[in-house]
Each structure stands twice: as C-alpha cells, then as structure tokens.
Amino acid sequence: MNPAVAARLRDVAPILTLILLVLVVGIGSRGFLSPETLLVLAADTSTLFIMAAGITFVILLGGIDLSVQAVASMSSVVMALLLPSLGYGAFPAALAAGALLGLANGLAFTRLRVPSFISSLAVGGIATALALAFSGTRSIPIGEELRHAYLWWITGRMLGIPAEIWLGLIVLAICLFVERYTLFGRWSLAVGAGEPAAVASGVPVALVKLLACVVSATLAAFAGMVLGGRLVAGSPTLANEFLLPAVAAVVVGGTALTGGVGSVWRTLIGALIVSVVRVGMTFLGVDVFVQQIVLGIVLILAVWITIDRAKIPIVK
C-alpha cells in the first residue's frame, strides 16, 4: 500500500473502529441506536474520558500517570466532606487537593528523576492513604438537600442532555484549546516527539513535564467530583477499576505510549470505543462474565490497528 494512504488510514482507524463497533451493536440490538441509549452511553463515558484526557498529556510526553484513580477517589472524599461546610467552595478545594498531588508527582518525576511509572504509582498510594484518613475509611454519603443545592451541575440535565455530557464536552474543548493554542500544548508534543531537540531549542522541558503531571491530577480530581456527584457519595475506593480502562482509552485512540503522537480528541474516540464495547456487549446479550474477555481482545486488536510502528524503533 502507498505509505501516504497507509498513514491516512491509520489516522482515521480509531474513528472507523468506533463507527464499526456502533454499527455492529446497532444491528445486533435495535434498542442501542435510540437517542436515549446513546445519551446514557455518552454520560457514562464522560468520567472515563475526563480522567483519560488528563493522562493523555502525560503520555504525550512519553510518561505515564498511574495515580489518577486514587486521586479521583480522594477528590470525591474531599468534596463530600467539605460540601456541608463550604458549599460551592468544596469543588475548588477538591481540585486543589488533586493539583497538589500532581505537583508532588511532577516534582518526584522531574527533580528526583524517578520514572513517572513509579512516581505516579507511589503518589497514587499517598492519595489513597489521604482519602482513607480523611474519610475514616468509610464512604461518605451526600445528603439530599446538599445534592439539590450544589450538585445540580453534575446530576441535572440541560437542554434535555445530561449535565455530565456537557462537562465532558467542556473538558474536551478546554483540552483541545490547550493543545492547540498554548505554549504548553505545543511544547508537550515537542518533548514527546524529540526531547533532545526540544532541549537544544531551549524548551523548558522540566517545567512542561511538571505541568503535565499537575494537569493530569487536576482532571482526575475533576473526574472524581463528577463520579462522586453521580453516586451522591465520596469514597476512598470510588474510582477503583478506572485506571486501566482510562489508559486503554488513551492508547486505543491512537496516542502512542512512547510519546509525541496523539491528541485529546483521539482520547475521546478511545474512551467511546471502550464504552461502546462494554455497554454494547450488554445490549448484545453477551454473558456478563464473558465481557471481560471480549474487552481484553478488543483492546489488543484496537492497539494493533491504531499503533504507528514507524515511529517506534524498538517495541518494548
């Protein structure tokens, strides 16, 4: 095949995969393509996407952030604990707590030169400890009045569309904006695609890495708030089982784990693929227990299709 055509195909592979999956599920199960089902699906994807969008920035640099699920859980705890006393102030407080953990991760990564895999894993441990300590290891329910007073922007609907979808779209818009219009966004790509050249060009590489860690943790905290709002509780284990699907969403979308190639836009497609596969299987009547197996196989196949080997000299 002509290399240019092949490259073009690889570029659109994730979205073709998504369309194909939607069609397959749609043909197999009439109910799936109804507007209401699709809205629910989109709303369900929102939290996963927000978290994955944050990780995208770190993966673009060639790093990884394994702290996100712990940070999200901690943020839900902070929010649930502070809502009664601070009201709306609980939200920025939860975000700030996440950002601080991201800062700690970034400092360990750039200053202590600990690989991001390890530093983020460790910071995840710290986040979990904090969440357990704050919550007294319990789940913290959010009262009915509090929910009505403060959580309308997470649980309500606007223009007939669930608020979560709006939140996901806002995050998407902000991330695309950051990617496209800020120095940080451009520098991230440059560092991921060619760190030595970025260094020689005077790009403040350490600062870019630090910022990416902060952005990732802040978005994880935001995802934790949305999830906490949906479940009307904060819990130190709230976002467990979110980490690996979130990383999978990034990679399935076609962002390379080696860095330099990718976009939050691709992560959205990836998150939708992961969701469609999960929800679609239920619609198709796939045995709940078999779903995990299918998910694993689809993940591997999706990466096989979307990955651009020309940009990875040695596959590790």
Binding site: R180, Y181, T182, L183, G185, R186, W187, L189, A190, A193, G194, P196, A197, A198, V199, A200, S201, G202, V203, G260, V261, K311
Partner: peptide, 27 residues
C-alpha cells in the same frame, strides 16, 4: 537534536521562539 521529526515543518520553525507567534499568550 536539530529537528523534531514527528512535528510538521511549521512547528519546527517556530519551536525556538514560540512566544513570537503568540497573541495574549496564545498561539
């Protein structure tokens, strides 16, 4: 150390002084 091969020509040319093509801090 010279080029960032996976970035387009335009991004490579502006990489040394990205600020010059910003307006209000944005590209």
């Amino acid at each position: 150390e010279g080029i960032v091969g996976f970035l387009p020509v335009v991004a490579n040319i502006t990489l040394g002084n990205l600020r010059a093509v910003t307006r209000g801090g944005l590209i």
